[in-house]
Design a protein around this nucleic acid. Structure first.
Lengths: 130, 130
DNA sequence: CGGGATCCTTTAGGATACTG
DNA sequence: CAGTATCCTAAAGGATCCCG
């Protein structure tokens, strides 16, 4: 059971509750590096360092950590070859691709809103200024 | 210009770049409290403390901070009445509602995936265990 | 009631060095 | 190449008090 209605008949999701699994999982995919990693993997398999170059500013540590969380949740598949030098490929699972699609439409939406967002920020800042 | 193609012809978004406005804005809406606040406001106007009760675990400080960021970006409208006691209503702007819709479908998707996610986590943990 | 200001703790995250 | 381990700093976040 992941949703119910509150005393006013409104739909409430499990994710609103402090101690729930879905909140943690949601944070993995919506986190700063989670979103970018998922969207980057959406158009194909990538190796660790390729992924790192794609997601500007991510450190080794954070990328490794992000990928492990996403792999554990079942969004990302990790394929390691025991060669020298090692080669590790990261791919989205079917479930991961579904989620990445949703994330991508969010990213596209926000990108399309940026002109309006920056206008709103300018208005907000001048209103506070005086 | 918010997107372009890289050397391999792949679509790349501005959000992938470290220093860009869209990345910051995206983080406001995808942040831990941003998602929940936007989704909570999606089915109507809410006052500060009502919102706080809805989003389990959020502190006064973080809710205020989240709302200010979302207001500055133009996603949330703040309507204050100079009465005693004061009354402040928070509503989504049209742009905010659009974004909240996208966020809601993401939340619904993740909630629907939780059974599979928990199965994946169990598999991952036992695989690491031995 | 809706915050702001202050103080403090905890976590995220970067830099560097090292390993199979 | 693909990480892990360690150390450290900066930012997130909570608790409390106060004010209009």
């Amino acid at each position: 059971m992941t949703q119910w209605v509150d005393e006013h008949g409104k739909l409430v999701f499990d994710v609103f509750a402090k101690a729930c699994t879905s909140r943690a999982t949601l944070e993995h995919v919506t986190g700063r590096w989670g979103v970018l990693t998922m969207v980057a993997l959406r158009d194909g398999t990538l190796r660790f360092n390729a992924l790192r170059r794609r997601v500007d500013g991510v450190s080794e540590k954070m990328l490794a950590q992000t990928l492990q969380a996403l792999e554990r949740d079942g969004f990302v598949h990790r394929e390691a070859q025991a060669t020298i030098p090692p080669r590790v490929d990261y791919t989205l699972t079917p479930m991961g691709r579904q989620t990445a699609d949703s994330l991508l439409s969010l990213v596209e939406l926000v990108e399309s809103q940026m002109v309006e967002v920056e206008a709103a920020q300018a208005r907000y800042d001048t209103a506070k200024g005086d």
